[in-house]
């Protein structure tokens, strides 16, 4: 098995884990699954680092390990674990439909990227397609889930997708860039978590359908 094959297969695994994040019933399990997914992402970084002999990617995988596998899931596990709103659980799309939608997204992404002619990524096109699809899968999660906590996870998925694209196509970027993106997304998650807690405290709901005071 060559390195690129590993990368492409691991990328496929990302889609599976993200479906699990979306499907999980409790925010704590979503957080754990998200940690798992980030672990897969780190594995991809490592595989890429080996294949492409890119030293930078080792550093990337370390920062991602710290931030995405440990820090963010931990914050969410602690901060969101106590929040409950059974009414908010549920999605516009049921799980089978969600899987179908995921499949369609992956297919569409492959098609879109078909005409790209960059020599550096020819053998990694499947992974690239997956990263794009992963991004949209996160968006799908935000749009279809009623629970605002799930929307936060949706954002995390989108961010992982973008991160993978960056790793595939631009691993030579300065380390500072990667740190900037990571910090920003951590802050985004933290602030979203804070607001979600505030909403839960003040309004006693996590259901996005209850947030309808502002219209028109």
């Amino acid at each position: 098995m060559t390195g690129t094959l590993i990368v492409n297969n691991l990328a496929g695994l990302l889609i599976v884990t993200s479906l699990m994040v979306i499907g999980a019933k409790r925010p704590t399990s979503s957080a754990l699954l998200y940690a798992l997914q980030s672990l897969v992402l780190v594995a991809i970084f490592l595989a890429l680092a080996v294949t492409k002999q890119a030293e930078e990617l080792y550093l990337w995988s370390i920062t991602s390990l710290v931030t995405k596998v440990v820090l963010v899931p931990y914050v969410m596990y602690r901060a969101l674990g106590s929040l409950r709103d059974p009414e908010a659980d549920g999605s516009i799309l049921s799980m089978p439909w969600m899987m179908l939608a995921a499949a369609i997204t992956v297919l569409a992404s492959f098609l879109v990227l078909d005409s790209v002619r960059l020599p550096a990524i020819t053998d990694l096109k499947p992974a690239l397609g997956v990263s794009l699809a992963h991004f949209f899968l996160g968006l799908l999660c935000i749009v279809t889930q009623r629970n605002i906590l799930k929307q936060i996870f949706g954002y995390c998925l989108m961010e992982n997708g973008a991160h993978l694209t960056l790793a595939l196509m631009a691993y030579k970027a300065p380390e500072l860039v990667e740190i900037g993106i990571a910090t920003d997304s951590i802050f985004a998650v933290v602030i979203m978590t804070l607001i979600a807690r505030k909403i839960h405290r003040t309004l006693n709901t996590l259901n996005v359908n209850q947030l309808t005071a502002l219209k028109g």
């Binding site: 960059l118 954002y155 961010e159 973008a162 694209t165 960056l166 196509m169 970027a173 979203m192």
Partner: peptide, 25 residues
């Protein structure tokens, strides 16, 4: 925050595409 971070995540994707595109050529 949700609409803008999600929206701006698209911006990130666009940025990454341009950057990596430029970096490889």
């Amino acid at each position: 925050i949700i609409i803008c971070t999600v929206g701006v995540a698209f911006g990130l994707y666009g940025t990454v595409l341009i950057y990596s595109n430029a970096a490889s050529v």
